[in-house]
Nucleic acid binder design. Structure first.
Lengths: 340, 340
DNA sequence: CCTGGAAACGTAACCGATAACGATTGCAGT
DNA sequence: ACTGCAATCGTTATCGGTTACGTTTCCAGG
């Protein structure tokens, strides 16, 4: 059902109502200084013609688009969850959302993607952006809030309490009796990766277990990166009885490698992840993991960005959200359960 | 890292390069009629100043925004899948995507939501829209393609082969030995709901099984709508041995009700859904369902909309995609397997 | 040397709205 | 009737580009 007639503009309305465009603009925006009679005339002309104001023209004039951007490296289930939260926060707020994601195939990462997207959007299409797991520092004329920011960044951001989350995860394993616990780290530049590793070390230290550097593999959050690391850990003569991976994507990969190598989970090996992506519930066995509500991360980031744009933000610019341990069936006491 | 300096405009570039804005525009758009020397000057001025053309101003002048819209009633996993496909199709196409979804709570459906969103977006912010499962007919100045369109609509659309899908689903049940098969229908106004019911009837007819109207419940695709219907079917003295629900959301609800009523699945009752949403894989037992690739639906819809906007579409304006049966563990032969 | 025409570039109107500013009107107070 | 202040409304510049059109430059051909 396409009607190809020309769009009806504000001056059309003005002509029909017998007033100037300025008056129509006042009526449309509910500004002061128009008599009730005129308002009625204009209103009637508006819906007689079916007038809708041009968002583009308005944006140009106001130098404010009322559109926020979400830029992500890729659109995975992680991003989808965040998106839901963002949309919830933006509903009925007058802001629209535009989303930007690389859709390159895995591996074709091009450094600086966030920056490219941002400079294109900022101040021209969007009033501000949310960046999900940035790769580096970001410059922008308009407000930007990062979800899972770069380490050491002072920019506005929202992230989970990664340290505490990692501690509970490792304590869960320790509580089950594990002492040789492997760790697969995330991309070093992210604050989350750093904190999760810190949590791993802290939990071990608290229990008087020495950290064995050879049990730590350096991944980058990309699931693929975990495969060779898991292989190395599991093919040692003295493999760990449990592995804590810094993300669910990597943990699921560990599960795959374990199966392939003949390890039964959780019989021979316990695995814990971090994130609680939907897939973790549906895998077999279900993955024990640390839940960081990605919905909540998105929600808070959007709430913050919104008020940053309107200039009414007074709360701290770095938000940390709590995490919780979700115990499923990928963890159990080690076979030779050395009771403490 | 927010820099509050004013945006650099085309006339800034013009001044620095010592030319007029018209010339800068020509260079930016690669138009004919500017000497190589001038091009070089302008180019250098552009990246000396870090100029980015204003998408808003360009859109206003060109009356073309290069933004497409996705409007959906709610943002569920169904929508997320569609979105992925859309984004894939739009990547590197020069089109951006803006998404619109009601985030009203369930039940607060307000008739005509798509129309409201569309008139707001069309021709002002977007060059065209994709509407997911519309509720009624749609009028728009710009192209619109529907995913899962209204019944009888001649507008551009993409949908699954719902008839064939339903037939295979019911044939699967028949093949297992079921004869009393309940059906929970979807929202009547949608073509998909209609075809799925047709498929149900056709499959039964083909096997010489009479359709019992009392075994048909009239739902509306809203999962909640299925609960009372399932209850009625299962509390009869002669409950069906299998239920085919027109959507996974409703089928999962059937599973819930069955559990609550003490039916074991698939022991006492087999259940089949339609859609293959992610949750269907992770439920216990896994839901046997008809897969319609929502990713693919989104991809095709975006591809079509894109060329509709640029006016280069020559293929048929109604696309039908194949479906496939995914057998999981919610179906089995009936207890009193009356071998045919 | 003159003419013609294409190439190169500037001028200015325009896209559709907003807002500063000025002009007009209405009405109360004196 | 006259002043003064508000309320009401129109004029016009402007947002940042695009493009029709006009002007100037330059060079080949006569």
């Amino acid at each position: 059902m396409i009607e190809a007639n020309a769009p009806v503009t504000m001056s059309d309305v003005a002509r029909v109502a017998g007033v100037s465009t300025a008056t129509v603009s006042r009526v449309v925006n509910g500004h002061y200084g128009v008599s009730a009679r005129t308002v009625a005339q204009v209103r009637s002309a508006i819906d007689q013609l079916g007038y809708e104001s041009s968002l583009v023209a308005t944006s140009l004039r106001r130098s404010r688009t009322n559109v926020l951007g979400l830029v992500a490296h890729s659109f995975q289930s992680y991003t989808a969850e965040v998106l839901k939260g963002v949309m919830k926060a933006l509903s009925r707020s007058g802001f629209d959302l535009i989303i930007y994601a690389n859709s390159d195939l895995y591996g074709s990462y091009s450094e600086g993607w966030e920056q490219r997207h941002l400079t294109r959007l900022s101040g021209t299409l969007t009033d501000g952006c949310i960046v999900v797991t940035p790769w580096g520092d970001i410059r922008s004329r308009t407000p930007v809030v990062a979800i899972d920011p770069v380490r050491g960044s002072a920019a506005p951001s929202v992230m989970a309490d990664n340290l505490a989350g990692a501690v509970t995860a490792v304590e869960h394993l320790l509580g089950l009796g594990h002492r040789r616990i492997g760790f697969i780290a995330g991309r070093d530049s992210l604050a989350s990766a750093w904190s999760r590793e810190e949590g791993y070390r802290a939990a071990l230290a608290n229990s008087g277990v020495a950290v064995d550097p050879t049990l730590i593999g350096r991944g980058d959050f990309n699931p693929e990166s975990a495969a060779p690391l898991a292989r190395v850990l599991l093919q040692r003569p003295d493999p760990p009885s449990a592995i804590f991976a810094a993300s669910d994507g990597m943990a699921l990969k560990v599960l795959e490698v374990a199966r392939e190598l003949g390890f039964s989970v959780p019989g021979d090996l316990s695995v814990v992840g971090f994130d609680n992506i939907p897939e973790s519930a549906s895998t077999e066995p279900g993955l024990t993991t640390v839940d960081q509500s990605m919905y909540q991360l998105g929600y808070e980031a959007a709430r913050m960005l919104k008020s940053l744009v309107t200039g009414e933000w007074d709360e701290p610019r770095q938000i940390v959200l709590p995490t919780s341990l979700v115990v499923r069936s990928s963890t159990a006491p080690p076979k030779s359960a050395a009771r403490p």
